Amino acid sequence: MKRILISALIGLAALTAGCTGTSGNANPTPTTGGGSSSTPTSDTGSASGLKALKPCDLLSGADATGLGLELPGEAEKVATSDGCSWKVTGNGRLRAGIRTEAGVKDLNLQGDKVSDIKVGKFDATKVEAPDGAKSQCTVVIGVTESSSVAVIATLSLSSEDTAAACERASKAADLIAPKLP
């Protein structure tokens, strides 16, 4: 059990730290599906608007309780991410982390399945079972090419219900997206 816990924590730390150090022009991969794409831009107004947000304000009290999260959320900094973590009664955590200097393409996102999705008006990447952790799912919203918000849902370590973790992360990301610049 200790190995599983240590492995999960290392995986979570690697995912939240996941900066590859790559520089240059990142070109987002087009998402599948019809309609127009609103690819994030390097709009400095959006980046500065993101810097003004407090991670624990990304979910309102009603949003948090609707997701089964315990209030209040706990502010925390992990690597380059300013975040907020909420406990889920008896079944894990949810974390939202803001990176003002790392876009989706700057992160090393690996998991059992990685897919491009849309969250509100934003391009995003969903990572199922990051680094093999079946109890986790991450949705990273590309606010601009050089900034992002990661939503990480973690179920209890004994769980291997990746679909439930992804459902929680996706619902939270849908609630967070309208609050982003």
Rank of each mutant, 00 (worst) to 15 (best):
S48I: 13
K54L: 15
K126P: 03
A64S: 13
I10V: 15
P181W: 02
V78Q: 14
A8C: 12
L5Y: 08
S81L: 14
S60W: 03
A75K: 10
T31Q: 07
P28W: 00
V88W: 02
I6V: 15
L155C: 02
K179Y: 07
V139T: 12
A150Y: 00
K113V: 14
E74M: 13
L58C: 10
S146K: 11
K51H: 07
D63E: 06
G34M: 04
L50N: 07
G61W: 02
T32S: 12
A129E: 00
A164G: 01
A133T: 11
W86C: 12
V88A: 10
K179C: 08
D116W: 03
A13D: 10
S146H: 11
L155K: 11
K105S: 15
L53V: 09
V104M: 05
D123F: 13
G120T: 03
G120I: 00
D82Y: 07
A75F: 11
P28V: 09
S170G: 14
S60F: 06
T65K: 08
I6M: 10
K105I: 12
L107W: 01
T22I: 12
D161V: 09
K51R: 15
P40H: 05
T29V: 14
G24N: 06
C56K: 04
E167N: 10
K121F: 05
L5G: 11
R3P: 10
K126H: 01
K121A: 14
A13P: 04
C56W: 07
T89L: 12
L58W: 09
S23A: 11
S7Y: 11
A52M: 07
T80W: 06
S148G: 06
P30W: 01
L15M: 09
P178I: 03
S156V: 11
D161I: 09
V78D: 15
G68D: 01
S146A: 11
P181C: 06
D57C: 09
P181Q: 00
R99I: 04
G21A: 08
E101P: 03
T39R: 07
T125E: 05
L12E: 15
R3I: 13
L71Y: 00
D106G: 06
E74A: 14
T100N: 07
N108W: 07
C137Y: 02
S85H: 04
G34P: 11
L157S: 08
L94A: 06
G61F: 03
K121G: 08
A177Y: 03
L15Q: 04
A150I: 09
K118T: 09
K2A: 15
T89N: 07
L180T: 07
T100F: 05
G33I: 00
S23T: 15
S46Q: 15
R99L: 12
K2T: 15
D116H: 10
S36L: 12
T29S: 12
A153Y: 04
P181K: 00
S48G: 02
D112K: 07
D131Q: 13
F122R: 00
Q110E: 15
S7G: 14
S48W: 10
A102P: 05
N108V: 04
G90H: 00
A62H: 02
F122P: 04
N25I: 14
P40G: 14
V119G: 03
I6S: 11
G132K: 14
T162W: 00
L58N: 04
R93L: 14
V151M: 07
D131S: 13
D161Q: 01
A164F: 01
S42W: 05
L58P: 09
T22Y: 09
S36G: 13
S170N: 03
